[in-house]
Design a protein around this nucleic acid. Structure first.
Length: 586
RNA sequence: GCUCUCGUAGUUCAAUGGAUAGAACUGCGGACUUCUAAGCCGUUAAUCUAGGUUCGAUUCCUAGCGAGAGCACCA
């Protein structure tokens, strides 16, 4: 349909030329998808645009344009042209076509792109924020791939720093012993680490309430700083053991989750590496970084319309900004990219402007190539507040996945599905429910997650789309079986309106993807899938694809079967782009 | 205080210069006894306010009101 739109646009342009308008290059008109399908597939607003120039009514121009197009358009591609007010509408030949593997997009085809997402920190829980970053990141990567880009994925993990020190310091306030017994499950080990982090922070907060200058609070801060130092210089055997084991457990646990979520990273970067490099880079460029209050080394962003940020703190330790800048060099060194995208919460938007600017000053080759996609936060209906892992009022990502999986099990209870398959299905459905909720809306906006509604697994949701695919697969299996055992294939039926609409909706997939790729906005694909599946379900309940007459003779409408097949391909391709699996049964 | 993001049915979200603002949930009302009811059909209901630009504004601009985030050593 994109190529047809392009064709129409060209012919429209020759129409403009034939009018002899002098500055026709500056005439901006569009040939675009019609929202309301009863009005056709494509429309142009050219008559409105010309109206003022020609001092003629749009309707009169539309009539002229219509006549011109009737004579000049490729009538194989365009079946019908119609004037409607000042618009000209087009009906495109909707015969089923092969769905392309790649949707060529000028900004993506042949480009080398690298994506940073998920970024959980070892020795802390994998929380909802990471789930969001992963979902959005994975989808955006797949969009880029669909657009013809060569992509790399990596996760950047904070394996050093105060949060780790706080966890280790917090161990002394945590119930139970260090869980290095082999019998303890990985999940429980990681839970223990999460608990230690919360215990450490809770303790610290309690002490802080006694006064920011109280001896106890200052002593605690000092202890944490000491632990932090010891992690860096590896001077304490006990801390080394706890650190190494804890880090390993966390990373293993993350891999389990990535598998469930469908992500495979090409690279992992660690703060233990970016930290020292950051210090080195900052110190090598005294013309860019200056000493600020209390000996911190800062970047004066005001010179560039940004604001000042600390890159090395007063203790000589690299901050987030210092490390982030080093990360840009690290990824450039392993894979020089045309563009790099970092997907994180949008609270970090301004910090990123500063770090990319500083990086560009040191490495001019990265100028204009480093981007940040800031997504909204997930909030829970009812208690709308920021989720923080410091205070422990978080829902862990794996727990949420588990809950959704359970809800899916409940729904399957009565279904005749092998018990050993149910776990896999439940997981696929649970993950789909979460991912689709995130991806169906503008990723920059906050998401209000209502667990109760989500657990119902109804409405325009991931499971709805998956369910539609399952119905089609089941139908196709039965149709094939019937044909094998002697059913009569037919094609005679006049195509019902629902089938026609479905077929025309299938054509729009390419456009939805193109738009999603260009804007790096998965919601266009998600919204499209809702429309497509909803149309399919209407079609499905109003049409008989297989028919058994009184004598028990079965006929199969193979033309409709083809439409079902094409729908399935598009659903699968669309879900894949969102990072969601399709399944055989539900 | 400064900067940024955002305000659409009762609720959660679409649409971003185009035609009658689309869904889902909720409410109300149906169909079925047949390819998976996690489904289908019908129905009630919305662009924060005031100006401006435009043939045309939910979309762009200005002001106001409201919500959220960021603004020096957390990430």
């Amino acid at each position: 349909m994109l190529s047809t739109a392009e064709h129409i646009k060209q012919i429209c342009a020759t129409f403009v030329q034939s009018l002899g308008i002098d500055d026709s290059e500056n005439l901006f008109f569009e040939v675009d998808i019609t929202k309301d399908m009863t009005k056709g597939d494509l429309y142009t607003n050219l008559p409105f645009v010309l109206s003022k120039k020609l001092t003629k009514s749009p309707i009169a121009i539309a009539i002229d344009l219509h006549t011109y197009l009737e004579n000049n358009l490729d009538r194989v591609q365009v079946e019908k042209v119609e004037v409607a007010g000042g618009y000209v509408n087009f009906w495109v030949n909707s015969a089923l076509k092969e769905i392309p593997q790649i949707i060529t997009h000028p900004d993506f085809t042949g480009k080398k792109l690298i994506f940073d997402y998920t970024d959980p920190n070892p020795m802390k829980e994998f929380h909802i924020g990471h789930l969001m970053s992963n979902t959005i990141g994975e989808s955006v990567v797949r969009l880029a791939e669909l657009g013809g880009a060569e992509v790399k994925r990596y996760s950047y993990q904070g394996d050093v720093g105060r949060h780790i020190a706080t966890t280790i310091w917090g161990l002394q306030f945590t119930e139970g012993n260090w869980p290095d017994d082999e019998k303890i499950s990985l999940t429980d080990k990681v839970k223990y680490l999460g608990a230690a982090y919360v215990a450490g922070n809770t303790r610290l907060t309690t002490l802080k309430e006694k006064g920011e200058n109280s001896a106890e609070y200052l002593a605690a801060l000092q202890e944490i700083n000491d632990v932090n130092k010891q992690i860096y210089d590896r001077s304490d055997a006990e801390i080394n053991k706890v650190y190494d084991e804890g880090r390993e457990w966390s990373l293993e646990k993350f891999e389990e989750l990535y598998k469930i979520l469908g992500t495979k990273f090409d690279f992992y970067f660690f703060e233990s590496k970016s930290g020292p490099l950051g210090i080195e880079m900052v110190k090598a460029h005294p013309e860019i970084f200056v000493v600020g209050e209390e000996g911190a080394i800062i970047f004066e962003g005001e010179k560039y319309g940004l604001h000042t940020r600390v890159f090395i703190n007063k203790f000589g330790l690299p901050t987030y900004e210092g490390k982030e800048m080093a990360l840009i060099k690290m990824k450039w060194d392993v894979w020089p990219f045309d563009r790099s995208y970092v997907i994180t919460g949008n609270e970090q938007d301004t910090a990123f402007h500063v770090t990319t600017k500083a990086a560009a000053l040191i490495m001019p080759e990265t100028e204009g190539k480093v981007f940040h996609i800031g997504h909204g936060m997930m909030k829970f209906a009812g208690a709308v507040k920021k989720i923080s892992s410091r205070t422990g009022n978080i829902t862990a990502g794996d727990v949420l996945v588990e809950q959704m999986t359970q809800a899916s099990f409940e729904k399957m209870k009565e279904r005749p599905i092998d018990e050993d398959k149910k776990h896999d299905i439940g997981e696929a459905v649970g993950v789909a429910a979460i991912k689709f909720t995130i991806l169906k809306q503008n990723i920059r906006k906050d998401i209000i997650f209502d667990p109760e509604k989500a657990l119902a697994l109804e409405g325009d949701s991931g499971p709805y789309v998956q369910y539609t695919a399952v119905r089609i697969k089941s139908l196709l299996r039965k149709a094939e079986e019937a044909l094998k055992s002697g059913a009569t294939p037919t094609t005679e039926t006049a195509i019902v309106p629902e089938a026609m609409m479905l077929q025309r909706t299938l054509m729009r997939f390419e456009h939805a993807c193109f738009q999603a790729i260009g804007e790096m906005a998965p919601q266009h694909v998600a919204q499209y899938l809702i429309e497509l599946t909803s149309r399919f379900n209407s079609f499905y309940t109003n049409t008989k694809i297989m028919h058994t007459d009184e004598a028990g003779k079965i006929t199969v409408n193979t033309q409709l079967v083809e439409i079902c097949k094409a729908t399935l391909v598009v659903i699968e391709r669309g879900l894949q782009t969102l990072g969601i699996r399709t399944i055989e049964q539900m």
